[in-house]
Design a protein around this nucleic acid. Structure first.
Length: 405
RNA sequence: GUGGGUGUAGCUCAGGUGGUUAGAGCACCAGAUUGUGGCUCUGGGGGUCGCCGGUUCGAGUCCGGUCAUCCACCCCA
């Protein structure tokens, strides 16, 4: 039996890899325009980092981590998300003490030991950004607009949902009220009973219909925001409206990771099945301090790359050259010529002598823009025959002209 | 971890009630009078019918198990 890729692990090969590269390039360029700089933390981190940042209550930490003891006896795990590693790096390199604003973007593999389904894999890719040191709600807005610009550049359809999940000043009192509400209602589903103890605000986005009916009467998070949270949330909406960004306020949008505060947002697609979040993020003003750094406000988001690739179309166009010969004795020359031309252009070279017709077919198949052939006549008078496969024009050129073309 | 669907050529799939050398389309390779592409036509290569076991004279087809995969729950990008 041949060896196959592990469950939930996918190869990215053409034509998908073209889409992958196109997306990363475009997203990086846009992030750079917003003054985000590239960072690449390790894929493997101490397990404790994720337990403390993502939170023990989340399923990610509870049962989805690729965790193991390495040969040195260290408890390590493959990163299940990107923020924790970037924050660790930020603190380790003492950027928190340096002060000022630091903006980073990253992309790469994340690992979660889950059952695969549509839009969900064990190894998947995220493109994310993290901004440190800027408490202004304008930064929240800028980050949302950055994500929107990336999605828009690929003509992706989505709805933007925003919410505020409060801060340590107001969230705990809300949680208390919610728990006492949940305790009074015995007919909520089993999952919600479990959530009540582990992460109560997660009940709000339960998919069970009867639960949702009950929660219509539940205390509202947005009515419990402290003055600071309320002010920022209102301002965020004003900024988005001023920029003509359509959004909905979704009080049930609570993000799964413990470290979020205040602004939470998600971009959702209706074309993806159950896993419909294509990007998600928010503010996490307490995480840096919680992980041992100087108190530093922060905001960020992550885009699920595989989910995006499902939604984008890349039209492939003709480019580059196809080079071949109709004579065996010209192959050496053709091969050498190919290497020279490749210093400046994309070129496919055929090692077998073929008929002109066969060459044109092959050139067409490889999406070359120009078919360049050396036949008997060309070999004798030192020229090359070139045909523009789009314009259907053909001509003879000297070898020198060909190389400079 | 739980539930349901599906496993036949590289890909998409046909193969009533079990019966000789397992098929199609697409893709690939080679040709269609010798130097002109994307269309058409002809030919060719390519399959342990997921795997193991059982029933049977005989299993791609029936039964059991197993593995893989997809979708959903859970969770999340």
């Amino acid at each position: 039996m041949a060896i196959k890729a592990l469950r939930g692990m996918k190869d990215i090969l053409p034509p998908l890899s073209y889409k992958y590269l196109a997306f990363i390039q475009k997203a990086s360029a846009i992030a750079q325009n917003y003054t985000f700089e590239y960072i690449e933390p390790p894929l493997l981190e101490e397990t404790q980092l994720f337990k403390r940042s993502v939170g023990e209550s989340s399923d990610i930490v509870g049962k989805e981590m690729y965790q193991f003891i390495d040969k040195g006896g260290n408890d390590v795990c493959l990163r299940p998300e990107g923020t924790a590693g970037v924050v660790r790096s930020f603190i380790e390199h003492k950027l928190d003490r340096q002060g000022g604003v630091h903006r980073f973007y990253y992309y790469g593999s994340m690992f979660r030991y889950e059952r695969p389904q549509k839009g969900r894999f064990r190894q998947f890719h995220q493109f994310g950004v993290e901004s440190f040191g800027e408490a202004s709600v304008y930064e929240d807005a800028a980050i949302i607009l950055l994500a929107k610009e990336i999605l828009d550049s690929f003509d992706i359809k989505y709805t933007l949902a925003i919410n505020s999940i409060g801060c340590p000043a107001c969230l705990p009192t809300y949680k208390k009220e919610l728990v006492s509400f949940l305790t009074k209602h015995k007919d909520i589903c089993e999952d919600c009973k479990r959530r009540k103890d582990t992460n109560p605000i997660r009940v709000l986005d339960c998919k069970n219909a009867t639960c949702q009916e009950i929660y219509n009467e539940a205390p509202k998070l947005l009515e419990h925001l402290c003055e600071s949270c309320q002010r920022d949330f209102t301002k965020l909406q004003e900024i988005l409206k001023a920029e003509n960004v359509e959004f909905v306020i979704d009080e049930r949008l609570v993000r799964g990771l413990d470290y979020y505060t205040k602004t939470a947002f998600e971009f959702i697609s209706s074309e993806l099945g159950a896993q419909n979040a294509i990007a998600g993020g928010g503010r996490y003003d307490n995480l840096v301090e919680f992980l041992g750094g100087r108190p530093t406000p922060a905001v960020g988001f992550a885009i699920g790359v595989e989910r995006i690739l499902d939604l984008i179309e890349i039209t492939q166009h003709r480019e580059g050259f196809y080079l071949g010969s109709m004579l065996d004795e010209a192959i050496d020359k053709v091969f050498h010529l190919a290497l020279q031309k490749r210093k400046s252009a994309k070129l496919y070279v055929e090692y077998k002598a073929k008929s002109l017709k066969a060459h044109l077919k092959a050139a067409d198949k490889h999406d070359a823009k120009y078919a360049c052939i050396i036949g008997e006549d060309e070999l004798q008078n030192g020229t090359i025959w070139i045909k523009d496969l789009e314009a259907k024009k053909e001509w003879h050129a000297s070898i020198q002209e060909f190389l400079e073309f």
